[in-house]
Amino acid sequence: MRHMHSRWGSQISFLSLALVLVALPFVMQNDFHFDIATQIAIIAATVVGLNLLVGFAGQVSLGHAAFFAIGAYSSAILTSRYGFTPLPAMLAGAVGVAVLALILGKPILRLKGHYLSMATLGLGIIIAIIINNEGWLTGGPDGIPVPPLSVFGMELSIFEQYEIAGYTLSGTLLWYILAAGLLLVAVWIAQNLIDSPIGRALRAVHGSEVAARVVGVDTTRYKALVFVISAVYASVMGSFFAHYSGFITPQIASFQHSIELITMVVLGGMASTYGVILGAALLLLLPQLLTDFQDYEMMMFGLILMLTMIFMPKGLLPTFQQILRRALRRSPKTDP
């Protein structure tokens, strides 16, 4: 299997990602670019967590947006209505999601293949319906405002300027730095998990669950564990997303959003942490890129998604790597 990348290789990949994130502010032209980049980083971190479940453990979730939404709504509701500060609110959301995932994980993960997808889909839609219907708490379909993120009384708003060590930095830049940092932490945790004994057990589950069970891997426990971890990833990032965007609606819990998240994983390259980041980036950029097509926008979106998956079924990054590897292998022979 190709997961046998050396420690060294994975460190180089990690450094490359960090370099890209540091370099981006020098390429981006205006605050709108920063705005999109920040959101990409937050969603990418969510998808890195989802990929642990889908890409490595091979369990397809069609309801992950629900966990993202629970995190986001916990932050929104607890800070604006119950006087919580953002970090405890975020923590409360994450704990709530972890407990929910733990309770539901066992019966859901007993299911196989499409039945698992079906159950996660059902769960996601039920949560979306509750958020939509309980307007007294959630603001209903018209959404709810979220106060800006604040840490120890210091508010971080994209609209403010901040004096830090003699430099004036915009809130937009600071939010980008925070989001980029979150993405790096998310990747670092995910990579460590993948290289740990748990990760090896998970890959065994993906390869063949029966075989894994025969050699003594407690498959259900590992699957439940990774389900909880990926749900918590989604919840925490949902909280950050809510504070960043300042206003959320039940759409973030919708089936459609769940589909978007899973599409990012598959588009970028399942089981490739850096691939799914690319997937998230491209899928979030695509609507912005297609605005010139106007009436053809939806058609183009579908067409590009379809063609990419037909011609690169392994996802973007793994396909590029494959081409690169082939090119490298061939080049010494052609050299004189």
Partner: peptide
């Protein structure tokens, strides 16, 4: 003009684009 598809997050992003870009 941009089409937000009825999605609030996209509406916010397009407002951002209109203002900042």
């Amino acid at each position: 003009h941009y089409d937000d598809g009825g999605n609030a997050s996209e509406a916010r992003n397009y407002a951002s684009r209109l203002i900042r870009a």
